[in-house]
Simulated assay, not measured.
Amino acid sequence: MGASEWDYYVPYQEDLNAALQQLRREVFEAGEYYWVNGADWRPEAEREPRPRTLEELWEAELVHEAGTHSILDVFLVLGPDDTPDYNTVEPVTAEEALELLGTEKLTRAHVPDFDVFPRSRWVGRCAVLHDDEGKPQEICFWGHSGD
């Protein structure tokens, strides 16, 4: 299948990790993810219903290999001193935004240029997006995951 790119926008809140956790719950509850154990490539008799909880989802061994091709594949927003690793989200820093896009306050207009930010498969990124007056408006999460 290969990896899938994904992006999501949520209203701004200061706690980026809380925003991620809320988004993950919403995506899971809406069923907006790839469920490998219920996939069409499996014989119908072997297809399993979608899990009832995120914990059940990650108990399925194939999910660790195939992923969900969604925000569910990342678990934690890193702090300023943390090193990006598998299943984490690295926030864009003000310094990084200034160096790569010429401003510390990113807006929706900058999103098409987000490919300048270094990223790795199975490691998401996030950025606070501001309105025209420079006030935080929303958070953009993006990345690519899955196999």
Rank of each mutant, 00 (worst) to 15 (best):
R119N: 02
R121H: 02
P49A: 13
V27N: 01
E56D: 11
V63R: 03
L54C: 03
C140Y: 15
E138H: 12
E14H: 15
E138G: 11
W142C: 02
D132E: 12
T53D: 01
T88I: 02
S4C: 08
Q22D: 11
Q22A: 12
H110K: 09
D115T: 03
A94D: 15
D147M: 05
V36D: 07
M1S: 11
R25F: 00
A109K: 13
M1K: 07
L23W: 05
L62I: 01
Y34C: 10
W6M: 03
P118G: 01
E48P: 04
L62K: 03
P11I: 15
V36E: 09
L106A: 15
Y86D: 05
E138Y: 14
D40M: 08
E99H: 12
H110Y: 13
P11Q: 13
E48S: 10
D115K: 03
Q137E: 15
A94E: 15
T83I: 14
Y33G: 04
E26V: 04
N37D: 14
P43A: 06
R119C: 00
D132R: 06
E133K: 09
P11W: 14
R24G: 02
E26W: 08
A127M: 12
E26N: 09
D40C: 08
D113V: 02
H144D: 06
W41V: 10
H130W: 12
D81C: 08
